[in-house]
C-alpha cells in the first residue's frame, strides 16, 4: 500500500483540526462547531452509499432514527449497568441499522435508479407509522431520558454526556467515516463501485459482483447513520420522538450536502457539510424566519455553477497540478 494513496486525508484532517481549534479556543463556538460537525458526519456517512454507488436512498434517515432508538432503548433498559449502557447503545444502534439495511438492501437494491429511490421512500414513513401505530418503544410519546440519565449517571456526568461527550463522539465518527471512505476508495471495492456507478451491466460483464458491492456500501453507510443518530440525537438531546427522527427532511439535507460538495469524493461531504451547516446556522441568526428562502437559491446557484460539486470541480481543474495528490 502506497503512502501516496492516503495523502488526501491530509487536507481533511487539517479542516477537522481547525474546527476543533475554533471550538476550543473561541468562546461560544463549541455548540456551532458541533452543529457543523453533525452535517459533516451525515454527509460522509451518506456519501459512502450515495456518492460511491450513485444510488439515492430517500429512506436514509430511517437508519439514523433506528440508531437513535437503539441508544434510547439501551439507556432506558440497561441504565443499571451505568456508563456501559452507552457502549451498549452504540452497539445496538449499529446492529439495528445493519439489520434494517440488510432487509432493505435485499429487496430494494434489486431495483435500479429512480425505482430504488421510490422504493426507499416508504421505509422511513413505514417505520414512523409502525412505531406510532403499534405503540412500539413508547409510540408517539417517544422515549424521554433526561430524568433517568440524571438519576443513574449523576447530574454532572449526564450534563457532560449531552453537552460535551456526544460532540466529541460525532467528531470521532466523522474521522472514522473519512478513513473508511478512503480505505474503500483505495481498495478493489472502490474500483468496483466506480465501475457499477458508471455502467452496472458493463461492470457485471467485467466480473464484478455488483450486488455484493452495493450491499457492502449500503451496510457500511447505514452503520455510520445509526451511530450518528445514537450520538447526535439520543445522547445529545436525551429524548427520541418518532416524528422527529423519522423525518425525511434529514435525508434531503444529506443529499444536498453530498451533491454540494461532490458525490463520491473524499473531501466533498466535508466541504458540503460545512457550507450547508454554516449557512443554515448563520442565516437563521441573521435572517430569522426567512433563512430557508435565502439558503435555497444559494444552494441552487452553487449546484448550477458546480454540477459535479465544489470538490468535484476543483479536482477536475487541478488534475495536472500537485493538488491532485491531495484530492480524492
Amino acid at each position: 500500500m502506497k503512502i501516496r494513496s492516503y495523502k488526501p486525508l491530509l487536507p481533511l484532517f487539517l479542516i477537522y483540526a481547525l474546527l476543533i481549534l475554533i471550538a476550543v479556543a473561541v468562546p461560544g463556538m463549541w455548540q456551532p462547531v458541533a452543529f457543523f460537525m453533525f452535517y459533516v458526519a451525515l454527509g460522509q456517512a451518506f456519501n459512502i452509499f450515495m456518492g460511491l454507488t450513485g444510488y439515492v436512498d430517500f429512506g436514509y434517515v430511517a437508519f439514523l432514527g433506528l440508531g437513535a432508538y437503539g441508544m434510547a432503548i439501551a439507556i432506558k433498559y440497561f441504565s443499571s449497568l451505568g456508563l456501559i449502557s452507552i457502549l451498549l447503545g452504540i452497539l445496538l444502534a449499529v446492529v439495528m441499522s445493519i439489520l434494517l439495511s440488510l432487509a432493505v438492501g435485499a429487496v430494494a437494491l434489486r431495483l435500479r435508479g429512480a425505482y430504488f429511490a421510490i422504493a426507499t421512500i416508504g421505509v422511513n414513513e413505514g417505520f414512523r407509522y409502525l412505531i406510532e401505530g403499534v405503540r412500539l418503544w413508547g409510540g408517539s410519546e417517544g422515549i424521554v431520558l433526561s430524568g433517568l440519565m440524571r438519576r443513574t449517571f449523576g447530574r454532572e456526568t449526564a450534563n457532560l454526556l449531552s453537552t460535551f461527550f456526544s460532540d466529541i463522539l460525532i467528531i470521532a465518527i466523522a474521522i472514522l467515516a473519512a478513513m473508511t471512505t478512503i480505505w474503500i476508495l483505495n481498495r478493489k471495492m472502490g474500483y468496483a463501485l466506480l465501475a457499477l456507478r458508471e455502467d452496472e451491466d458493463a461492470a457485471r460483464v467485467m466480473g464484478i459482483n455488483v450486488t455484493k458491492y452495493k450491499i457492502m456500501a449500503f451496510i457500511t453507510s447505514a452503520s455510520f447513520a445509526g451511530l450518528i443518530g445514537a450520538v447526535a440525537w439520543t445522547l445529545k438531546l436525551t429524548y427520541v420522538f418518532p416524528e422527529d427522527v423519522f423525518n425525511i427532511h434529514y435525508t434531503v439535507e444529506a443529499i444536498v450536502i453530498v451533491m454540494l460538495g461532490g458525490a463520491g469524493t473524499l473531501l466533498g461531504p466535508v466541504v458540503g457539510g460545512l457550507i450547508y451547516g454554516v449557512l443554515k446556522y448563520y442565516l437563521s441568526v441573521v435572517f430569522p424566519g426567512i433563512q430557508l428562502l435565502i439558503l435555497a437559491p444559494m444552494l441552487i446557484l452553487t449546484i448550477i455553477a458546480f454540477p459535479e460539486g465544489i470538490v468535484g470541480f476543483i479536482k477536475k481543474k487541478g488534475k495536472k497540478s500537485r493538488i491532485s495528490y491531495y484530492l480524492r
Binding site: 474500483y191 465501475a195 458508471e198 455502467d199
Partner: peptide, 20 residues
Amino acid sequence: PRPFGSASVRENVAIGAMFG
C-alpha cells in the same frame, strides 16, 4: 463501447485486470 466514463483510461483497464 461502454467505458467507465469518469474513471481514467488507465483505471478502466486496471478494473479489467482486477476483476477478470
